[in-house]
C-alpha cells in the first residue's frame, strides 16, 4: 500500500512582513529622533583684527578660568557674578555700552563658557571675544 506524503509549506508566511515593516519603522524613527536639536542662539559681532583700545577700556571685562570668573580684575563666585553683571548693565541703554569682552584661558571647558556667556546674555550684555593672536617671532 502506498502512503501519500503530506505536502510541506514552502512559501514564507507573507502576513508576517507587515509586522517586520512596522518594527523596522519604529526602530529607525527612534534612532533618528535621539540627536538633540535644541540650543541657544548667540550674536557675536564680526571679528576685528585691531580692536580700538580707547573703547575697550570702558567695557566690562570678564576673564574665565577653568572654574572661576574674574570681572574687571575681581574674582567672583558664579551666583554673585550674575547679580553683579545685572546691576552693572542695568543703567546702560546703548548697545555699544553693553559690550562685555570675554577672555578665556585655554583650559576653560565649553560647559563653563556656555554657563557664563548665558548669564551675560540674560543680563542684556553683548558678548565679544578677546582672543590672543598668535605671533611667530623668528630668532636669529
Amino acid at each position: 500500500m502506498k502512503l501519500k506524503r503530506t505536502k510541506l509549506l514552502v512559501e514564507p508566511p507573507a502576513s508576517a512582513t507587515s509586522d517586520i515593516a512596522f518594527i523596522l519603522i519604529v526602530f529607525f524613527l527612534v534612532c533618528a529622533s535621539v540627536e538633540p536639536d535644541q540650543g541657544r542662539a548667540q550674536t557675536l559681532p564680526r571679528s576685528e583684527p585691531e580692536p580700538k583700545k580707547d573703547k575697550q577700556s570702558q567695557n566690562i571685562e570678564v576673564e574665565l578660568t577653568r572654574d572661576a570668573v574674574i570681572m574687571n580684575g575681581n574674582p567672583l563666585p558664579k551666583e554673585s557674578f550674575a547679580k553683579t553683571i545685572i546691576l552693572k548693565l542695568a543703567d546702560k541703554t546703548r548697545d555699544e555700552d553693553r559690550i562685555v569682552a570675554v577672555k578665556s584661558r585655554k583650559e576653560v571647558p565649553y560647559s563653563h563658557w556656555m554657563d557664563i556667556t548665558g548669564i551675560i546674555e540674560d543680563a542684556g550684555g553683548v558678548i565679544t571675544l578677546q582672543l590672543e593672536e598668535e605671533q611667530t617671532v623668528q630668532v636669529q
Binding site: 538633540p36 540650543g39 550674536t43
Partner: peptide
Amino acid sequence: GGELHHILE
C-alpha cells in the same frame, strides 16, 4: 557672517 546657534541639552 554665520548666525551662531549652540546645540545644548
